[in-house]
Design a protein around this nucleic acid. Structure first.
Length: 829
DNA sequence: AGCACGCCGACT
DNA sequence: GTCGGCGTGCTC
């Protein structure tokens, strides 16, 4: 019998901690169980058991007992911990950090300190005013949280005062594990125990003769609960659950009759746990469109690929009907092979459309896992996936990878090129697309990556035969791809032909579209009103005091906003440098574009889609819904408008400033610009006249602009690949980003220098870039330095990781650099 | 990540 | 002299 359990805590610890199993728990605890453990003098956490053993820890550690078992059944299915381990190892983070990301917060319990009043103070007790105040804020019977007491007292931290009061016995603390998740309950009705037999009821009915309402109600209950059948088998466990609301539904005077029956002791109520999971109601299957020849072919080819390979890329132009192919694959996985499917989609609010589409086909077989859903729903889905009733299909964002799957057979990664598959902060900085491949290997599932604009890495893997490659070139219903015209903004401005953010051609087309009751999408990759305010006289511009960035002017709020830390500032009345009261707004954000559209087309109905207008899920749905219904004519937005939305009536798409995309200081800038522009162009001309895209840029001569115009992914792939090979970037090397942060710029810079010095002996000089001051050199009062490590394919990645970790330890051993935060970002985007 | 412990400046 | 600030180290 195992006496010790190594557990994982949801903290950034490097290793697991060992707790002793009290005899009562031995044999009941399994790997994957959730246990309650005490950490430090009083805190409690729920931890996950990841090893059971009999090896006593070294004598210097005082091993604590496991305090209790949180759930009787394991929360994890066998194998899930292996994915966690892989992630921690590959992405260079603590397993506890993976645990934190993996579990919905309702499954992570943590104790909270609560304060109560202790013995009454002696008359001669000399209390400071502050102690008096804190004591007055405590109650004798209601335990209050520290935050509550802090709020009542105000001022500095109450903790030291509390400590003194506790030592004097005037206050007591208790630790309470807060149960964050409460299952939703509904009041149900059942027969009280003495009446759970036919004989008892037969004896009862004569007494009800003078109370017809009660009699009716009781009969109704018996019918709803299928009592006759249960009694015939003499098994009251077979009684159907009857919700009180259903029993009383439409029954006039039912409440009174019910109260009377309860008073007689015939019926009783009890809380019944129900699910809150929103699932598409099981509807009669929508007959899917019969597949086109091309879709049929794609399906066959995918089958052939899966016979020999575990991963296949489905590269299909926008509107080629990839979703129909996915649907068929999922259906067969579920129905023919009896296995589960996971449909991953990027972390953008657009789930609704796909949800509805798949919901119409799979109805009650589909569960949805989304970060914007209430946590309780995620907890329920998790629990359900552990059971026999697990949904065969889960639609979810990247964290859905962590859900338990009993028999996963297929993972679809839709829009695989999307950067939101990569978690940026905090650790684990994992890419869900790549992790999906590992999960598939661990579970024996297949992976289908789908997109119109593959990530270069993915396409290369496919071309080299590591993945299968299936392509679809034809748009649904043979619609033509939109015509793309390039407008040279530099020229137009020089000739003074462009006083608005719109080229004359774009204005004409917009007007034409409005006349024909067609719709327009305008893409401007910047939110706010103006990205920069500038003093007319001296050129001063307001900057964030915590970050090294100019502030964006938001006109509606009349505030300056830092887009890095979110801090708000008042708009200065005058320039602090020269006192000039005229601040000009330079450049365009979506808000200013909206104003310009209003000025040009006062009659048009306009929607705006950006971070500022979509703070809540419902507002996003509302804006999209209005546009989809045709209640708005023009939709202005940031990246959000490019994300695979299907609108039927859009004829004109304007890309207002491609240069912002093209001039990013990033080796992926052109790849991204292509993806974004191809995606947004794909929104045009789904029905009716051929769509038109007006692409405004100052650099029409760039090859990538031509590639967008011709929708020539192959050319983009060739040119970019050649460039990456010359300069040594992915997919020819793997990257590990290293960043150092500190409040003091000199310390930060010096630490980065010495870290680089520690690494240099291990790598070729060209393979370690930096340290550099990033374009935004300070965020949230922390100065930043970055290094970029190129890992050549020949190098053992494991050794590189060890080198990095050793160098990190060496750096932090220097007293001055102890407080430098060092983070690794494996495969950064 | 908390949270206790310990060192040092502001104020009674 | 004490209060309360914050930097440092540990948690089985």
């Amino acid at each position: 019998m195992n006496r010790y359990a190594d557990v994982l805590l949801p903290l950034a610890f490097k290793q697991t901690l060992t707790y002793a199993l009290p005899p009562a728990l031995q044999g009941r605890v399994r790997v994957g169980s959730r246990v309650l453990v005490q950490l430090g003098p009083r805190k409690y956490y729920s931890a996950i058991v990841c090893r059971l053993h009999d090896v006593p820890p070294p004598p210097e550690v005082r091993v604590k007992d496991v305090s209790g078992l949180v759930d009787e059944e394991s929360l994890l299915l066998p194998g899930q911990l292996r994915l966690w381990e892989w992630m921690a190892q590959y992405y260079m983070c603590a397993s506890g950090e993976v645990m934190k990301a993996a579990l919905p917060s309702g499954l992570k319990l943590e104790s909270e300190m609560r304060l109560l009043r202790g013995q009454p103070p002696q008359d001669d007790a000399a209390l400071t005013p502050r102690e008096e105040a804190v004591l007055a804020a405590l109650s004798e019977d209601e335990a209050r949280s520290v935050a509550d007491v802090q709020g009542r007292v105000g001022g500095g931290s109450v903790l030291p005062v509390v400590r003194r009061l506790v030592e004097a016995g005037l206050a007591t603390v208790e630790e309470r594990v807060v149960r964050q998740y409460r299952p939703r309950t509904v009041t149900h009705v059942r027969l009280a125990a003495p009446f759970r037999s036919e004989a008892a009821l037969n004896a009862l009915f004569p007494a009800l003769h003078r109370a017809p309402k009660q009699e009716t109600l009781l009969l109704r209950y018996l019918e709803m609960s299928h009592a006759a059948a249960a009694f015939a088998l003499d098994h009251d466990g077979l009684l159907e659950e009857v919700p009180k609301a259903d029993l009383l539904y439409g029954a006039e005077g039912g409440e009174a009759a019910f109260a009377a029956l309860r008073k007689r002791g015939v019926l009783e109520t009890y809380p019944f746990e129900t699910e809150r999971i929103k699932q598409a109601t099981a509807q009669p299957r929508e007959l899917e469109h019969p597949l086109t020849d091309e879709q049929e072919r794609a399906l066959r080819e995918i089958d052939e690929v899966f016979a020999t390979k575990d991963c296949c890329l489905l590269h299909g132009v926008t509107s080629s009907g990839k979703t129909e192919v996915y649907t068929q694959l999922i259906r067969r996985e579920i129905e023919e092979r009896g296995r589960q499917a996971l449909y991953l989609l990027p972390e953008i609010a657009l789930t609704t459309q796909i949800m509805q589409r798949l919901g119409r086909v799979f109805g009650g077989q589909m569960g949805v896992y989304h970060s914007k859903f209430p946590d309780a729903e995620r907890v329920e889905l998790w629990r359900r996936q552990l059971t026999e009733r697990a949904f065969p299909l889960v639609l979810g964002v990247r964290s859905a990878l962590f859900l338990p799957f009993r028999k996963l057979g297929l993972i679809i990664v839709d829009e695989e090129h999307e950067t939101s598959y990569k978690q940026a902060d905090p650790a684990p900085r994992y890419n869900a697309r790549d992790t999906a491949l590992v999960l598939a290997r661990l579970t024996g599932a297949k992976v289908l990556l789908g997109t119109a604009t593959p990530a270069l890495e993915t396409y290369r893997n496919a071309r080299q035969g590591k993945y299968g490659l299936v392509e679809m070139f034809r748009r649904f219903g043979d619609r033509r791809l939109p015509e793309i015209v390039v407008e040279n903004v530099k020229e137009l401005r020089r000739k003074k032909l462009m006083p608005t953010p719109f080229a004359p051609r774009l204005l004409r087309e917009m007007r034409d579209a409005l006349v024909h009751r067609e719709q327009v999408i305008l893409f401007q990759n910047r939110r706010g009103y103006a990205p920069v305010l500038e003093c007319r006289d001296c050129g001063w511009t307001p900057h964030c005091t915590r970050c090294d960035v100019p502030l964006t002017f938001h006109r509606k709020q009349n505030k300056l906003v830092c887009h890095y830390c979110g801090n708000l500032y008042d708009v200065p009345f005058a320039c602090p440098q020269c006192g000039c009261t005229e601040l000009r707004d330079l450049g365009y954000g979506t808000e200013k574009v909206e104003a310009a559209v209003r000025a040009a087309f006062p009659e048009a109905r306009i929607g705006r889609l950006d971070l500022d207008t979509t703070r809540s899920r419902s507002s996003y749905d509302a804006i999209i819904g209005d546009f989809a219904r045709g209640a708005t004519d023009i939709l202005i937005g940031t990246q959000m408008v490019t994300k695979g939305l299907d609108f039927e009536r859009v004829r004109v798409v304007g890309i207002l400033c491609a240069d912002q995309l093209l001039n990013q200081p990033d080796f992926r800038a052109h790849e991204r610009a292509f993806q974004l522009m191809a995606q947004v162009a794909g929104r045009a001309g789904r029905r009716g006249r051929r769509g038109l895209v007006v692409l405004q840029t100052r650099q029409p001569e760039l090859p990538v602009v031509g590639q967008v115009v011709r929708n020539d992914y192959a050319a983009l792939y060739r040119t970019q690949l050649a460039e990456r090979e010359v300069f040594g970037f992915p997919p020819f090397v793997r990257l590990i980003g290293i960043s150092l942060k500190h409040r003091d710029e000199h310390v930060c810079a010096a630490a980065a220098e010495s870290f680089a010095a520690l690494l240099r002996p291990h790598f070729r000089p060209d393979d370690l870039l930096g340290p550099d001051r990033p374009s935004v050199g300070r965020v949230q009062l922390q100065y930043i330095r970055r290094l970029l490590l190129k890992v050549r394919p020949a190098l053992p990645v494991q050794g590189v990781r060890r080198t990095l970790q050793a160098a990190g330890a060496a750096l932090q051993a220097v007293p001055a650099y102890k407080r430098v935060t060092l983070t690794f970002d494996v495969d950064p985007l």
